[in-house]
Simulated assay, not measured.
Amino acid sequence: MKCVSYNIQYGLGADGVYDLPRIAGEVADADIIALQEVDRFWARSGMVDSTAVLSEHLPDHYWVYGANLDMEASFSEGSRLIQRRKQFGTMILSRWPILSSRNFPLPKWGDRQHHSIQQGLLEAVIDTPLGPVRVYSVHLSHLCSATRLPQIDRMLEVIREAPYEGGAWCGGHPNPASGWIEEPEPPMPEATIVMGDMNFAPDMPEYDRMIGGTAPGYGRLTNRRGLLDAWVLAGHAENSGSTHPNANTRIDHCFVSACLADRVADMRIDDQAKGSDHWPVWVTLAANCESPIN
């Protein structure tokens, strides 16, 4: 099962060319795709609906979109109002059905002078060959640790509480003819993959908050029901790799729940990609592992 995370910078490539089909081509081989900085109806990107363009060029993938910036962009055409929203957010695409989806706004710092935008965490429960898996696409604040740590706390709360909340609907209904239970109760599994542009490096406090700190003489501490860094699980050193040509470190990450740790077979950074200012990160999970995922 091949997964990829890519901050697409609304389709603006490293060469200064705006090209959404190129983005789609760079990730087309993936089974699950987590994208960040996907916009709809912005002048900078030609007023196109990027979700429509990307899905058109990835016709074998189901998709969901989470709008975090959502602003007025309607216009009048004669006597008719054309309803349109100027949006910016995250997207998840999958070769397998997306059984349910939710989008969670993350804490926003209201700065007086520096650009600060609403960020969010997009959830998709996907019916994979491994069984149902929760996949998240996230983009955290670019400003500093102080603005990201509250976002991480909220993100971890969402991820931790989801199985206890149950699926998109749960618990049945007293009136089976009501239409509320037209399909089986959707799952909300423990198995989790979190991907995105998180804007922090492994030596920052946000990384410790995500998976656990370090202890003198023992090294990295991880929780048996927490998240693990797929890069490390794939055999790389924690402080190795770079996901942005100007960062010289990893700021785009993939974290997996402990029940998926044994399935991480490989992780790589495609530093030849030209579709954005970031590089896509690829994670392969083995389907032939005997360990249960839940």
Rank of each mutant, 00 (worst) to 15 (best):
G11F: 04
L12S: 06
L12Q: 11
G13I: 05
D15A: 01
Y18M: 08
D19T: 11
I23M: 04
I23E: 02
A24R: 11
G25N: 15
G25W: 15
E26C: 02
E26T: 04
A28K: 07
A28R: 09
A34G: 10
L35T: 02
F41Y: 14
A43G: 00
R44H: 06
R44F: 01
R44K: 12
S45Y: 09
M47I: 08
M47R: 10
D49I: 15
D49G: 15
D49T: 15
S50C: 14
S50P: 07
T51E: 12
V53D: 15
L54D: 09
H57T: 07
L58M: 08
P59Y: 03
H61V: 04
H61T: 05
Y62L: 05
W63P: 03
W63I: 04
V64M: 04
Y65W: 11
A67N: 06
N68W: 01
D70N: 10
D70W: 09
M71T: 08
E72T: 01
A73M: 04
F75Y: 13
F75E: 05
S76R: 09
E77H: 13
G78S: 05
G78V: 09
G78K: 01
R80L: 13
L81T: 14
I82Y: 00
Q83E: 14
R84W: 09
K86V: 00
K86C: 13
Q87Y: 14
Q87M: 14
Q87F: 15
G89P: 06
M91C: 08
I92R: 00
S94M: 13
R95W: 04
R95P: 10
R95S: 11
P97W: 00
L99H: 12
R102C: 04
N103F: 01
F104L: 02
F104N: 00
P105A: 10
P105V: 09
P107A: 06
P107Y: 10
K108W: 09
K108H: 13
W109L: 03
G110T: 13
D111F: 12
H114F: 05
H114M: 08
H114D: 09
H115R: 08
I117R: 06
Q118E: 11
Q118T: 13
L121S: 08
V125C: 01
I126G: 03
P129E: 13
L130Y: 06
L130F: 07
G131A: 06
G131E: 06
G131K: 00
P132H: 15
P132T: 10
P132L: 02
R134W: 05
V135T: 03
V135F: 07
V138F: 03
L140A: 02
S141P: 02
S141H: 03
H142Y: 11
H142D: 07
H142E: 01
C144E: 09
C144I: 01
A146Q: 05
A146G: 00
R148F: 09
L149G: 01
I152S: 03
D153Q: 13
D153H: 10
M155W: 03
M155K: 04
